[in-house]
Write a protein that binds this DNA or RNA. Sequence first.
DNA 1: GTTGACTCCCAAAACGTTTCGGATGATATT
DNA 2: AATATCATCCGAAACGTTTTGGGAGTCAAC
Lengths: 336, 336
Amino acid sequence: MANLKQLAQSLGLSITTVSRALDGYADVSAATRERVRQAADQAGYRPNASARRLRKQRAELVAVTLPSEPGHIGPAHFLEMLSGCAEHLATAGLNLVIAPVPSGESELDMCRRFVDGQRVDAMLLVRTKRRDERVEFLQSRGIPFVTNGRTESAIQHPFIDGDGLSGFHQATLRFQDAGHRRIGHIAGPQDYFFAHERKKGWEMAMRDRGLPADLCVEQAPTEQGGYEAALAMLNRPDRPTALVCATDEMAIGVLRALREVEGGDTISLVGHDDLPIGSFTSPALSSMRMTGGNLGRSFASLLLRTIAGEPAEKLQELHAIEFVDRDSHQRSSPAK
Amino acid sequence: MANLKQLAQSLGLSITTVSRALDGYADVSAATRERVRQAADQAGYRPNASARRLRKQRAELVAVTLPSEPGHIGPAHFLEMLSGCAEHLATAGLNLVIAPVPSGESELDMCRRFVDGQRVDAMLLVRTKRRDERVEFLQSRGIPFVTNGRTESAIQHPFIDGDGLSGFHQATLRFQDAGHRRIGHIAGPQDYFFAHERKKGWEMAMRDRGLPADLCVEQAPTEQGGYEAALAMLNRPDRPTALVCATDEMAIGVLRALREVEGGDTISLVGHDDLPIGSFTSPALSSMRMTGGNLGRSFASLLLRTIAGEPAEKLQELHAIEFVDRDSHQRSSPAK
DNA sequence: GTTGACTCCCAAAACGTTTCGGATGATATT
DNA sequence: AATATCATCCGAAACGTTTTGGGAGTCAAC
């Protein structure tokens, strides 16, 4: 409501002094500072955001791009992560704006809009592709950004990622140790870094034991995708006895397929992401998850540090994957 | 990168003319307009957002408050709704910022921060309570806002809501028509408007047929809450034969309880929200959903219209509820 | 009584845009 | 030939803040 000029006038002080008093500068006497603070409190004064942003040449905003895949925007806990991120950013005076890609516009155009209009101080990119044009653009412009998931970019950039390769490697080995030989992989779209990495982990484990890595179907990372991929795979004569699934959402679709095909209830399954819903499926879904605590907070911290100018090399977090043992990974001993 | 001054200089024009040319005013000749546009395009010029916001006294931002209930932020499709809203707002030059409530701060303080700092042109409130202090505050300040869910506020305000009372009334009647007499309700927290409304619908239907409305347990609107509520209700001697559940998430918890108690597989169940996951549970979850198409887009439209000054009375949408028949609502004929 | 240090305060510029109120010629009207 | 009309353009103010570069006054030291 009120602005600095009015506040200054009512106090018989200059705008400068009021501004500096509120910012706690030492060159205003303690008495005046207190008097100003009281008046500001009482008037409910808050500095006008646009004016400060203009003057300080900072947008006080960070944008997160939302993928526009039809009907699917990311795992169910994604919003929770964003919320944590926004909350932590807010302590530094930054707000988080969500930036879905409008139909008819590319993700690149959207980044451009935000960057060239100086609407943001940094960006958060999710669902990175192996070769990601958003990353290339932001690097060329020198805008700070952090990605959720690595890329194959030649230039380093800050990221947080789970070590999906190791995770899927280990998970596949576990199935092998339990006696499984025909272990299938329900893969996500291979242009996504995470999906490619998880598939490589599975492949590596199969090769480790001299087994063929041929039971693989690629599909959209959704319940429906998992369902369709599983149906396709289970109709093969060399049907797998265990499935390693790129995401929990796909795994939930797989569960449905397992209920529908004969003998499906003997097939073991593990997903990835540890969605809360996993405890409530039937059978309860075994899964994997990234270690490392509050993800949103970590993103916020990385964003703040990259804005502050820390080098990318120090802002890369690769977290180990841990297993979440529930029921679906040991439904029966593998036949033959 | 470039600003108006540089652009004007390089064209040998005044700042005024360049600005007006880009905004398509009629008092700059077609030839100059074209010349300016070309130069602007080529320089990748975008007006500085902060400067425009300051000058136009508009924040070009809308904030949506995120509930801070521990571990739960809303139904799984909530982000999708936000994305649709953000996308539509963007066509009017507005961005959507997400505003989680920091720990130690009330939702009210948060609204205050946004409003008094003139950081937003409007707010979107979700998970409204029957008596909602955020609503009261925004009304007192005269800031445009739209709510997801009605309130009991004496003053009208724009909202979008589903007619939960009718929906739950109808659903309960359907169970009665199928022969059920003991129909329970798994209720959400009653200070939420939607939860209260849904319970009233169930109660009304029970009373319609002279049945007691005593089989009701209130719990957190989460899978866990539904699970616990169901366990409590199923251990009663007068165990229900059918359950009407305030949300799908609670219903998914109920499904788990039904698997764990003896005879649980004969109990019918319906939820509300039509989460995508409902097709993939076992049994597939019958549900209800609000009619009315793209919810996010509707919110955006209401927000724009209330910012434009349309009266609240014209900005209230109460949508009918439709049923989504899958398997869980007819698991067996009711015993006795 | 001059100098220097120190405390407290302020005028003015700057951030980049939009917009108000003309100014300047050229053309049409009387 | 004077006047009105029109098409183009522009200077300057304004939005509300932060920050630069002092200015005035007090006090102590020389």
